[in-house]
Amino acid sequence: MARKIKMIMAKPGLDGHDRGAKLLARICAEAGMEVVYTGLRQTPEMIVAAAEQEDADVVGLSSLSGVHNYFFPRVVELMKQKGMEDVLLVGGGIIPEEDYDFLKKSGMGAIFGPGTPTTEIVEFIQANVRQR
């Protein structure tokens, strides 16, 4: 049995915009990944617990309400505390480009805004995911 990339797609905080997250979850599933969609209103603790239980290779965070600078680094931090540094973190949504650097420095693998061709997202994940 060939191994599959396992991904968690989560919406941190109270942001209710879930179209992008659901769309991307479907696209990644179409690309052959097994994608766990966690739904809305996730705390960083819930996201990290889900990633741990599912043995996720990738965690995707989607934010359109401007809370990325708080939530994304918080998830990274909790993952580090648990020794899950090898999990690839990717983010997307409405995120000003001037925040990309900060988010990447804090440990996000990449950020993808609206208009990114989704094949690019899939390829990035496939190229940067860990072995296990």
């Binding site: 599959k4 479907r26 990644c28 097994e34 969609y37 966690t38 996730q42 603790e45 617990a49």
Partner: peptide, 26 residues
């Protein structure tokens, strides 16, 4: 067709996510 999967059951299980005595696997 693609071998991939969208695992959605966990959406309804959010409230159980941070109880350390529960383990959920999709």
């Amino acid at each position: 067709f693609t071998g991939g999967a969208l695992l959605g059951d966990r959406v309804r299980m959010s409230e159980l996510a941070d109880d350390p005595d529960i383990y959920i696997r999709s």
